[in-house]
Computed example of a mutant assay.
Amino acid sequence: MTAERVAPAWTHTRISAEQYDSWSEEQCAGIEIVDGMVVTGPSASKRLRRLARLLANALDAAAGPDWNADTDFDVRLRDVPLTNRRPDVTVYRAETIDLTPTRPEHVLLVVGVVSPGSDTTDRSVKADQYAKAGIPFYWRVEQAATGVPIVYTYVLDPAIKAYRDGEMFTGMVKAAAPFSFEADLGAL
């Protein structure tokens, strides 16, 4: 006898913002909604989750009182069709800490930590979605063969709703935008 795995019905139908907002945090964990459809990505390794958490802590400390940085929560890019992304790190307006959902106008910077299997999504798809939503800064973190993470930074060109290349950092990040920030990636 073989056991067949049957996907839940909600994985085959479009989800509205109202439906999604009624789900528990446990139901929303580990998924994103793109054009109303539930999508899952590869699970990040413990090393990459730790990198995201430490980077969020460093960004939070550097951001000042007007901004907070945190990991793994929804950013509502669009209501219809529903598109929620769950960046690895999000820097958002401190005054919006109790507002749900977090909207692009609340967000200053999103950081994607690339996992094996998320390369194309993090390099192209998510960057395009964040830019079209008007998020001013996007950073992509990749693991180099040396083991030291590389940070690629991007700055929104609001006239064309696309990111322009910023700086690239290996080892020590010394960014001036969106605020003064320094971190030793080798130590993360």
Rank of each mutant, 00 (worst) to 15 (best):
F73K: 05
F137H: 15
A62S: 14
C28W: 01
D122S: 05
R78T: 01
Y92G: 00
T96W: 00
Y20W: 15
R85C: 04
A183K: 02
D165A: 14
D72R: 12
E32R: 09
Y163A: 04
F137W: 14
A17Y: 15
V113Y: 04
S24M: 10
D119S: 06
V75Y: 04
D88R: 08
A127L: 11
A58M: 01
V110S: 04
L54M: 06
E25W: 06
L188F: 14
E26N: 08
V80I: 11
G147W: 10
V39S: 02
D79W: 09
P8F: 06
G117E: 05
D165M: 06
L77A: 01
P136A: 10
A94D: 05
A9Q: 10
A44G: 06
T121L: 11
G186W: 09
P178Q: 09
A162Q: 14
P116G: 02
L108F: 08
L59S: 00
T100A: 11
S16Q: 02
V111W: 07
P101A: 07
V34H: 12
F181N: 03
V113W: 05
P81S: 10
P158K: 12
T11Y: 13
T13L: 13
S16A: 10
A58G: 01
C28Q: 15
S24P: 01
G112T: 13
P178D: 03
T102C: 15
E18K: 12
D72H: 07
T83Q: 09
T153Y: 12
L156G: 03
T2F: 07
R140C: 09
Q129D: 15
L48A: 09
L55G: 03
L77Q: 04
S22V: 00
M172S: 03
A69L: 06
A58T: 01
W67K: 03
L185M: 12
Y92P: 00
T120I: 11
E95G: 05
R78V: 01
W139K: 06
E4A: 13
P136M: 09
T120Y: 15
S115R: 06
W67E: 10
W23T: 02
R86S: 04
A61E: 12
